[in-house]
Structure formats: structure tokens, C-alpha cells
Design a binder for these strands. Structure first.
Lengths: 235, 235
DNA sequence: GAGAATGGAAAGTAGCACTATCCACTATCT
DNA sequence: AGATAGTGGATAGTGCTACTTTCCATTCTC
């Protein structure tokens, strides 16, 4: 098929498709003449994936490029790809919290206010270190064997530290219940992956399952909260 | 304190603070003279919350404005605020999936591409309806009593539909395990809220706990996946 | 009373995700 | 063979968001 049909089938405009090709999200079509290219269902599939990652997954175009590059690289082990996917998600949402002053720009900065300590938000550095220790204690308590450099550990530390900074440190008590719950989820995730021997598109499945899975879990939590609340306090 | 100190304490630049005041995220300081205003710890607290919502929570400035307005309105029941928070999160991530073409704008919409069906991506409308039925069956099976108009239900439907569209409909089988897990989480959440009688700042706690809680749960899931995977397949 | 800080308004900027416009072709219909 | 629509490739432009910069007439602080 040619670009027009690809556009019609996916609902993505022709200029946008061209844009994705330029950005390296979508491989170019196969040229049959200097200005005539053909696209196949692989392109269509990929394009749908891109739109979902951007639209439902909330990733930026650059993040999608990273994720897709990792998916396409057959030498990447699955967990590495997942790492890329996690940090790509995180890239648009897990950062800062009241320290330096820049959250989205990232131009020159150069550690402008690198005063020894104290002058800033609220002795941020040591706080984060304390939280990190707390988190590592949790992992040890759980017997979860994971490298402390795994990006998700950083996300966890960032989020917990943010809670404490806001004066909601009490919420940390919920972490053990969350860990219980998450074990169930992770077991199901891994079980699902384990039972399909076909490695074809497995990496994509993992990425989709993880990214969209997060959205699903968040939505289910809201719904379950409503129900639990109704149950606890009577209708 | 004056704006300079507020800035120093929180690490947010003076112009940015002014910007937040203009946008209605932060109430203006109390004027003592025509050009001299005072800010208190309430402002500081609020400013930290804003930065966290934007930075860690990934909300847009407009979404933060909505959430804060809901938090501040004492006539809003907690679940309504949560609804606003959910949709504010969703606003930057749960939409589209391959149909209309715009994903981030959201200006006038008015159900723009209401073509009967077919011409578009892949008979999207009926698919979504089927998914919705599936989701409602899940809720019924679980005995979760929640209005089907609750925004989280829409998010859930959107995410599941996106999975199916990508050819990963199999993943839906994980939903029951997720539901089990999420019940644990929601019970803990509600329990936590229930045991603090002080309604002071309770709404804020719920919002923070929900928004940051999602990040925490996602991070924990990644970590637990790594562990479960190692356990399943041997080191 | 001099220099720094403040409030308020308005204009400017950087990044992002597209979108529009061109151009020289090619495909297809008639 | 000619008209019309579609194509690849490149460059420029658009709209939106989240700030920044620049002003200026005060006001605080030393």
C-alpha cells in the first residue's frame, strides 16, 4: 500500500506519518521508484503502536523513539527494554519536586545555586538518602533481589521523597500493603510471559502490557477505592 | 515573608511564582501596601504541592488549577475531588489511540469525526462498546458497585480497547489478577483515610496519595516483575 | 537617600508535536 | 495523450504550554 492508504487505515494524517518517518519512529517505505514507496502491515502495526504509546501511554515522540529502538534491537534483553520503557514514562513525570528550579527546560543551568546546603528547599539531599535507605530496607524485607540501580528504584525513591516533603510521610505505611498487591500483579505478568514460548513480538507485548497495564491498574484502583469506601462507610 | 523568601525556601523562581499567582494556582499574598505583599507557610505548602503535582505527578498547569480548585472547595465531596484528580491525570495520557488525529490539543472537539463507522481505523466504535460490556461484566463479577459513568471506568475501557486494537487482547486475561491486587491496595487506602478523624487536609492527602500512589505502585510493579522473573527463570 | 526588592503587566522565548506549502515527479483514469 | 490526483522529500510555519524577560513606579532596608 502507499502512504495515502496507510493514512486512511490508521486515521493518522499523511504529513504526520512523514513526520514520524523523519523522526525515526517509523521505517521508511520500500522505494519502487525515486518517488514511490510501499508500506506493508508491519508499518500499519507499528503506526498503531506509536499512536497508542503517544496517545494512551502518554509518551513523548522522543520517548517513543527510544522505546521502539530498544524493541527493535534483538540483542537487548527483555529487562533492558523494560528499563527503557520505564524511564521513558518517567521522563515526563518523575523529576524535581522543589529543588533546582527547572523542571522541563534543561538548557544551561550549570548548577547555579550550588550552595553548601540548607539555603534551598529543605535539606533535600540527606532526606532523599534517608528515603533511599528506607526503600532498600523494604526491598530487603521483601526478599526482592533487584539492583539498586534499576531505574524503577529511583522512581520509587523520588515519589516517596516527594510525599514526605509534602508532609504526607504517614502514607509510607501503606507501602507494605502495596508490595503485597504488587507481588500478585507481577506474578501474573511473569506467568503470562512464561506461558508463551513464541518470542515473536514478546518484547512488544511486555512493553504494551507494562505501559497500558499501569493505566489499567490505576483505573482499577480508583474503582476499587470507590467500592471499598462505600463498603467501609455504608452507602 | 515576602516573595523573595518564598522563592528561596522552595527553589521556585520569583517570576514563576508570579506566574502561578496569575494562573490562579497560588492565592496572591496579603497586601500591606499597594506594592508589598506577605506570604505565609500556607503559600509555601501550596507551592510545594504545585511543584510536586507538576513535577512528580506529571500534571499540566491547567490540570493543577482544576485539582486545587476542587481541593479548596469545601462543598466538594472527597470522591468528586478524586474524580477531578483522575481526569486531570488522564487528560495528558488517556485519549485517542488511532482515530481522530489530535491527541493533546483538546480545544473544541465536539465529537468531530462522528462518521457512521468503517472508514476509520478499524470499526472502532463497536469494539469499544464490546470492551465496555466486558469491563462492566468484570465489575459485576467482582461485586464492585460503581457508577459506569465514573471517569476511571472510561479510562479502563480506553486502555483495554487500546490493547485489543494492538493485537494484545490476550492480556485481558490478567485483569482478574489485577483486580485481586487492587482490592488489597484500595482497602489499605480507605483504611488509612478512615483512621484519621481529622478532616483537616484530608482531601489533599487523598489526592497526593492517589497521584503519587500510582507512581509508587508502578515503580513497585517494575521491581516486583524483575524479582518474579528471576524467581521463575532462575538467576 | 542609595541600591536592592517588590508588585503588576506585557512581551518574549524554548520546546514540542505537528501542519502547510513547495516542488518535481508518478500513477491512473479517460 | 492529457488531465487529475497522489507521492516523496525538504523547509518553513503554527498553536500550545510553561515559563522568562523586561518594564516601571513604588517601597523596603541599610
Amino acid at each position: 500500500m502507499r502512504i495515502g492508504e496507510l493514512s486512511r487505515r490508521t486515521g493518522v494524517s499523511v504529513p504526520t506519518i512523514k513526520f514520524y518517518v523523519r523522526e525515526g519512529l517509523l521505517p521508511p517505505g520500500r522505494l519502487s521508484s525515486p518517488n514511490q514507496a510501499h508500506y506493508d502491515e508491519g508499518h500499519e502495526r507499528r503506526l498503531r503502536l506509536i499512536r497508542t504509546l503517544i496517545g494512551v501511554g502518554g509518551l513523548s515522540v522522543a520517548a517513543v523513539a527510544d522505546v521502539l529502538a530498544a524493541i527493535d534491537d534483538p540483542s537487548q534483553p527483555v529487562h533492558k527494554v523494560l528499563g527503557v520503557a520505564s524511564t521513558s514514562i518517567a521522563g515526563q513525570g518523575t523529576d524535581d519536586g522543589g529543588a533546582g528550579g527547572k523542571a522541563r527546560s534543561g538548557a544551561g543551568d550549570g548548577s547555579g545555586d550550588g550552595s553548601g546546603d540548607g539555603t534551598d528547599g529543605s535539606g533535600n539531599g540527606e532526606r532523599t538518602a534517608a528515603v533511599r535507605a528506607e526503600v532498600e530496607a523494604l526491598l530487603a524485607r521483601r526478599g526482592w533481589r533487584v539492583s539498586p540501580h534499576y531505574p524503577a528504584v529511583d522512581s520509587l525513591v523520588t515519589a516517596v521523597a516527594a510525599m514526605e516533603r509534602l508532609g504526607h510521610g504517614d502514607l509510607v505505611r501503606l507501602l507494605d500493603a502495596y508490595a503485597d498487591a504488587v507481588e500478585i500483579i507481577a506474578r501474573a505478568d511473569v506467568e503470562y510471559v512464561a506461558e508463551r514460548a513464541d518470542r515473536d513480538g514478546l518484547v512488544e507485548t511486555v512493553v504494551v502490557g507494562t505501559l497500558l497495564g499501569d493505566k489499567i491498574i490505576a483505573a482499577l484502583r480508583r474503582i476499587a477505592q470507590v467500592d471499598a469506601s462505600a463498603r467501609r462507610f455504608g452507602d
